[in-house]
Design a protein around this nucleic acid. Sequence first.
DNA 1: GCACTTGACGAGAACGATTATCATTACTAC
DNA 2: GTAGTAATGATAATCGTTCTCGTCAAGTGC
Lengths: 132, 132
Amino acid sequence: MTVRTTRQRTAILDALTEADEFRSAQQWHEAMSRGGDRIGLATVYRNLQSMAEAGAVDAVRDEDGEVLYRLCHATGEHHHHLRCRHCGAAVEIEGPAVESWAAKIGAENGFTNIDHTMELTGTCSACAAKGL
Amino acid sequence: MTVRTTRQRTAILDALTEADEFRSAQQWHEAMSRGGDRIGLATVYRNLQSMAEAGAVDAVRDEDGEVLYRLCHATGEHHHHLRCRHCGAAVEIEGPAVESWAAKIGAENGFTNIDHTMELTGTCSACAAKGL
DNA sequence: GCACTTGACGAGAACGATTATCATTACTAC
DNA sequence: GTAGTAATGATAATCGTTCTCGTCAAGTGC
């Protein structure tokens, strides 16, 4: 039941560290393959998923329903993202106001066990400069 | 290019009106088929999609990435939802505070053209009473 | 260092939601 | 009624993701 440090897991972490952007599992796999790492697609999926569960990476869903991953820089527990729709660059957002607002709305409507998702998408200044 | 009033489109609107819950395209199709409507799955997808574009129905993505549809009751333009994860019941939420907060965060980080998604999920009182 | 246990890997098949294809049907305007 | 054309529907195709299962190798105890 021990978590093993494999060559592949290390390679994924390296890739995540090098490119600090939100990318899909397939994009990460492709980037790593191009970079010379021999690694299976299923392995990339498996590891990104377990890392996301462990809180080591952030996972968001884009407008097409694809899941995008990026190394997590968060200090605290729960946070949101402001992500560039063109390059995948993102900053982490603390939104205590949103958290409490969500809880309040839930209670007002008789809902319990409230969960929320909230993601911001935009065009970063670099991409805007390129005319994207 | 005229929008035609077909038997199928009417049937979909009827179904949406009868069951005021968030359901996937497939669930709506199944419910209609069980109810005696002969209609193709592709047609359900097409119509729900175009209705969503037209703003007649609301579309959200659940945690599995599936798209759920429900008749839109919104008064204004942009709004969010508080949805029961068990029965699909939902209330529409106006969140002017969130809108302006999102815009502000975007501007602070040099992002333009900000878009945002925000959905609340919880257990409604009826489902909580059932022990769900 | 060596054998062994078992978690991890990987190639490909399977899956499931959604979309595209295209011949056929049926609204609408005239 | 008729022509024109948007809409339909059965089915194939797409595509992200997950499963299968035989193989491999990281950790562990000696």
